[in-house]
């Protein structure tokens, strides 16, 4: 167990180093940092002085090392556009994205698994047909169109829910939350639905396929022969065995929630990291781009690691195999 975790941890560190290298290359070689910081009317001698002081003339590995040590201390340089530390910009906007992502992921997981079970058990029913058709349409529609459609129905026509922003937020230490006010919660509904739809259909289809596969297997037939009630068979025997791949996919999908959050945040003008990243790409604000890349890389690597360990805990077969070695 320990060896397995250590080995995975080592791989994660390597991946993080590669991500850091890419971030560093972007940071260092996309545009000239001096020109971006100093502007065009600084004298050449002064520019050279700045170059010296910032260590831009040092050999490559020294610069990379400095970038790494700075990054570990949370120092990613100053945003060209806003003249503030890139790390602080990201941290300021992180709570908004995390709240959105967590709510959508929960929504997707709960509804996706429930609908998956339903469509597997009642495969012939009319409602299952409706759900399956809707999911097919949901997969081929771009996220931003779904968001705009929801805005049109619920904000423009019905005027039930706000169409943009986070509503009133409350400051809790450094964390700015929208969970505590009514307008904050109302503002969360549409973006959360938009962001969760794609993952929801994915999880639903996966649960359905796995469940139908399991329901055909011998041990389920045997359980039926033993006269166990349907509820026990479906939920204790069948569902448990469908959950392993569901955990993996859901975990990996958490990462794409962050990527799709870029789109959703732009549609609803949600003040999170995703919309910050978009404006940074438009303005070629390299330090913020590099910081965002590092952050997303860290999230992905952590999720992968956690999923692998969970997998190991959930599936006993892997543990036995591990001991055999």
């Amino acid at each position: 167990m320990l060896i397995f975790i250590l080995r995975r941890l080592f791989q994660s560190v390597i991946v993080m180093l590669v991500v850091a290298l890419i971030a560093f290359l972007i940071f260092r070689y996309v545009g000239d940092p001096i020109v971006s910081m100093a502007g065009v009317d600084t004298r050449l001698e002064d520019q050279e002085l700045m170059r010296q002081r910032l260590g831009l003339n040092d050999p490559f590995y020294v610069q990379f090392w400095n970038f790494l040590t700075n990054a570990l201390q949370g120092n990613f340089g100053i945003s060209y556009r806003l003249q503030q530390p890139a790390m602080r910009l990201i941290l300021d906007r992180l709570p908004a994205t995390i709240e959105l992502a967590v709510v959508s992921a929960t929504l997707a997981l709960v509804l996706g698994v429930l609908m998956g079970i339903f469509t597997a058990l009642r495969a012939r029913s009319f409602l299952s047909g409706v759900i399956m058709t809707l999911s097919l349409v949901g997969v081929s529609l771009p996220t931003f169109l779904i968001g705009i459609g929801l805005i049109y129905i619920f904000a423009v026509e019905l005027q039930w829910l706000p169409s943009n922003g986070r509503g009133v937020t409350v400051q809790l230490g450094w964390w700015r939350t929208g969970f505590l006010t009514e307008s904050g919660l109302r503002s969360l509904i549409l973006p959360a639905i938009t962001l969760s739809l794609f993952q929801m259909t994915l999880i639903m289809r996966l649960v359905r396929a796995e469940m139908m596969e399991v329901l055909r297997s011998d041990y389920i037939r045997f359980a039926r022969a033993r006269g166990l009630p349907d509820r026990v068979i479906n939920f204790r025997h069948a569902l448990k065995n469908t959950l392993v791949p569901v955990i993996t996919i859901t975990g990996l999908q958490l990462g794409s929630v962050i990527a799709f959050a870029i789109v959703t945040e732009t549609v609803f003008q949600w003040p999170g990291v995703g919309s910050l990243f978009i404006t940074s790409v438009q303005a070629v604000d390299v330090p913020v781009m590099a910081t965002y890349l590092m952050m997303v890389g860290l999230v992905f690597v952590t999720i992968n690691l956690v999923v692998d360990i969970l997998y190991y805990l959930v599936d006993p077969r892997l543990r036995v195999q591990g001991k055999g070695r």
């Binding site: 991946v15 972007i26 996309v30 799709f260 870029i262 789109v263 790409v281 781009m289």
Partner: peptide, 20 residues
């Protein structure tokens, strides 16, 4: 590695770098 990152994120990054 690339498949574990969403395509839209990669495209955004490449676009941003190229514009720089």
């Amino acid at each position: 590695v690339q498949l574990s990152f969403p395509a839209i994120l990669i495209a955004l990054l490449i676009f941003g770098v190229a514009q720089g």
